[in-house]
């Protein structure tokens, strides 16, 4: 038997150059529904001008990342029960550290460009062990990479908050994961705004919905970069 809760969605609204504000919508929900279900219902029955991004509804596309009560969440897999209580409030805001297009939708163009420039592969060999770098080049089956490019880690990163030039956790993790540290990628990651800019807050790993563990990957990338420099210094290939 399903429960019914009354919750209030506080939705961040911003159109063009207008000042931002929050709209409140009181709703009857099943607490086992997901936060995105409520947002879709608001769009369907209350306000068709609400702009938000979503697609797959099963944490594969990475489109529905938002701030839910101040924490980065993939709203399609975040049960209402986990973020509020009966009679409570769900404040929904766009991700931080990305330009807001409208309401809850952000512009991730630069992020996608950076992912591409470090050689992140959205589709990898089935033998590609995402966690901790094991790789089987003989395996010809393909699967989606763990990183779904949702941008939650960039939103949660305190360094990205003050330094938009910082490549950010997902991009650095993408470089580590691709394993191909060619001169172009090295130029990007072995730089002031690359792997050395991370200040070890580990917030990226906390919010990642795909267990990519970007913080661990950044540290591993640093180890690889130091190893390369030492080898280069001693003329070892």
């Amino acid at each position: 038997m399903t429960q019914t809760w009354t919750v209030t969605y506080e939705i961040f609204r911003k159109k063009g150059n207008q000042a931002s504000h929050y709209d409140r919508f009181e709703m009857k929900v099943d607490p086992d529904e997901y936060v995105l279900d409520g947002i879709e219902r608001i769009w369907a029955f209350n306000d068709r001008s609400l702009v938000f991004s979503h697609a797959c509804h099963h944490s594969t596309c990475g489109a529905c990342g938002m701030l839910v009560n101040g924490v980065e969440k993939l709203t399609c897999i975040t049960p209402i029960r986990s973020v509020t209580k009966d009679g409570g409030v769900i404040r929904v805001e766009p991700m931080r550290n990305f330009p807001v297009i409208s309401d809850l939708s952000v512009d991730m163009t630069v992020f996608y460009q950076r992912m591409e420039s470090v050689g992140h592969q959205p589709v990898v060999s089935n033998g590609f062990e995402d966690s901790k770098g094991k790789f089987d080049p003989e395996d010809d089956l393909l699967r989606l990479s763990d990183c779904i490019e949702c941008g939650l880690c960039i939103s949660a990163c305190p360094i990205a908050l003050t330094t938009p030039a910082y490549l950010g956790p997902a991009v650095l993790a993408g470089a580590q994961q691709s394993g191909d540290l060619n001169p172009c990628v090295l130029d990007l990651v072995d730089s002031e705004n690359g792997a050395w800019r991370c200040h070890s807050a580990y917030e990226c790993t906390e919010v990642c919905p795909s267990h990519v563990d970007p913080a661990w990957r950044i540290m591993d990338l640093r180890k690889k970069l130091v190893s390369r420099r030492i080898k280069k210094f001693f003329g070892i290939k």
């Binding site: 009560n69 101040g70 924490v71 630069v110 460009q113 950076r114 420039s117 305190p158 908050l161 003050t162 330094t163 938009p164 030039a165 200040h199 070890s200 807050a201 580990y202 917030e203 790993t205 906390e206 913080a215």
Partner: peptide, 28 residues
């Protein structure tokens, strides 16, 4: 790649511990 101006005004947010994990508390 496009220019990305620094946002020093956001520095104060580094010290906001709300909704943060243990790693951020260590950072702060």
């Amino acid at each position: 790649m496009a220019e990305h101006p620094q946002k020093p005004a956001n520095l104060i947010k580094w010290f906001d511990p709300r909704n943060k994990s243990l790693g951020s508390w260590a950072f702060i």
